[in-house]
Design a protein around this nucleic acid. Structure first.
Length: 161
DNA sequence: GCCAACGTTGGC
DNA sequence: GCCAACGTTGGC
């Protein structure tokens, strides 16, 4: 099993959208960056994913989702009505992939950027590098556990609810 | 709203 | 293949 982080703007898709549909698989589509796409292609069913809220009031990691369906061509790329339409893509030659994910847990607080920067295990994390724009990022087991441990140590209920 | 950083495009 | 211009991301 592998670990990941995915960014989302909560106005478009937030941890609450997952929490409100706890057993529903939601499509993670619209990734239009080759590096991020390639990471998505490496995802397998059961992989765990931190959800990160960006460009919003409370920036940071807000919960966990998991992969329930590995990559398949993102249907939005063929749809001229979609904001994710790519005229250079076709069903014969798809460019972009999606995965399906579902809710695992919502943290009882946002693990904010400033706090993430204090976690020494994350010193090399691309997420925290200046100018980083990657929306799908791999986490090592060490990095993952360090984040979870930070939550646990600050809460009485293991950082989840 | 500002601006730094980055990825992509397109002319050459 | 180079690189300037442009559009987008994302924190502040």
């Amino acid at each position: 099993m592998a670990y990941w982080l995915m960014k989302t703007e909560p106005d478009e898709c937030s941890i609450d959208d997952f929490a409100n549909a706890p057993n529903k698989a939601l499509r993670w589509d619209g990734v239009r960056n080759y590096q991020a796409r390639n990471f998505m292609r490496a995802m397998a069913t059961g992989d765990q994913v931190f959800l990160y809220h960006s460009s919003c009031a409370e920036i940071g990691i807000v919960g966990i989702v998991e992969v329930v369906k590995a990559t398949y061509p993102d249907p939005a790329q063929y749809d001229p009505e979609s904001a994710y339409f790519d005229p250079k893509s076709s069903p014969e030659k798809p460019r972009w992939d999606a995965v399906d994910v579902r809710f695992v847990s919502k943290f009882n607080r946002v693990l904010g950027l400033a706090e993430l920067r204090t976690i020494s295990a994350l010193a090399e994390q691309p997420l925290l590098r200046k100018g980083n724009r990657l929306s799908v990022i791999p986490f090592s087991t060490t990095e993952w556990r360090a984040v979870v441990a930070t939550l646990s140590s600050s809460d009485s209920d293991n950082g989840r609810k």
